[in-house]
Design a protein around this nucleic acid. Sequence first.
DNA 1: AACCGGATCGTCT
DNA 2: GACGATCCGGTTG
Length: 213
Amino acid sequence: MLGHANQPLGREFFDRHVVDVAPDLLGRVLVCTLPEGTVSLRLTEVEAYNGADDPGSHAYRGRTPRNEVMFGPPGHVYVYFTYGMHFCMNLVTDQDGHSSAVLLRAGEVLDGVELARRRRPTAGRDRQLAQGPARLTKALGVGLDFNGADACGDRLPFSVLTGTPADPSLIRTGPRTGVSGAGAATPWRFWIDGDPSVSPYRAHVPKRRRSSE
DNA sequence: AACCGGATCGTCT
DNA sequence: GACGATCCGGTTG
């Protein structure tokens, strides 16, 4: 039954509450096909961001040109640029008008390991190719130009396949990485326990102000 | 393995 | 004008 394991996920998959979609994405296969070739990966770590009630979300303070896509229909890709050099990628969830999305934090590269390694020459082991949200986008070849792209249907470059959903008993949850303030407490980070491609947990550490002495 | 600082710029205050 | 949903290379234990 191999064919059954790789059906594309339709828009209805994403048209649910972000906290339901996020763990359900674990084990799914994200495919990115560009002129240079295809890289696919099995999602192993994600984070839920729920715009309306979530102080950690980019959308919390309302609609801006950057977060526009989060407010649109589900199944689309929200890409943002951060730290002056990195891109991170989300899949928009919930109905049109809501502003929630799932940040893709890590994955295991399945197809296109060679291409991914060309894009990430500093990676050590293969498991590190997409270990971390900015590493994941780099391995896939994703930049700001794909903000707003549709991840459902037959359109390139993205599709999300059913893959083999993670065994629910292996799914762990915890606080989100890099989120400070009230939103930090909510355990909306999901990962597959024991998977080697899951990025090591780092608690948010506010940058210290240099004291005057 | 853990910790530190530098890189680098769009976004919002 | 400050800082971020980060990564990397260096150093120290």
